[in-house]
């Protein structure tokens, strides 16, 4: 399985990449939504994208909207991973097309539980 980690913080990208790699994912990362779209435009379409909200250049919400406007990327699951925890913001993200919402801070176990909920744990890990 493939995952694209989009976050402007290198530290957070490393943390999320570490969790996903340990679960068996092949991971690429991007520093903002625009870089994330560049990866998709290369033809590298992941099963999962984890997306921070507040980023320079292109924020997470803009990225989600851009992905949703392209039918070729419809099968990709999008999970916001962000410190934005206001209810109205969560509703906005889900309305824009995000599938799930993970609030920072989180533990590796909580992250894994979310993936299980989405049916995105690689089979050998889920067993």
């Amino acid at each position: 399985m493939r995952a694209l980690v989009i976050d402007d913080s290198r530290a957070m990208r490393r943390i999320v990449t570490g969790i996903l790699t340990n679960l068996g994912y092949e991971v690429r990362d991007a520093g903002h939504g625009g870089e994330g779209l560049d990866v998709l435009n290369e033809g590298w379409v992941p099963d999962l994208a984890t997306i921070d909200w507040n980023m320079p250049v292109m924020d997470g919400l803009q990225f989600v909207s851009a992905v949703r406007s392209n039918p070729a990327w419809r099968r990709m699951t999008m999970m916001m991973v962000t410190s934005e925890s206001e209810h109205t913001q969560i509703v906005r993200a889900l309305a824009a097309g995000a599938h799930e919402y993970m609030i920072k801070p989180f533990t590796a176990d909580a992250f894994r539980d979310k993936l299980a909920l989405l049916g995105l744990l690689p089979q050998e890990v889920a067993l």
């Binding site: 913080s9 290198r10 530290a11 410190s83 925890s85």
Partner: peptide, 30 residues
């Protein structure tokens, strides 16, 4: 590296504190 990681900690703590305050509010980049 230090600015990025230390900034991310402020981002996470700040986001949680923002959630405890009356909203809606915006949060800046760290």
């Amino acid at each position: 590296d230090v600015a990025d990681a230390f900034g991310e900690i402020a981002n996470v703590v700040g986001g949680s504190i923002k959630a405890a305050l009356p909203g809606p509010s915006g949060l800046s980049l760290p």
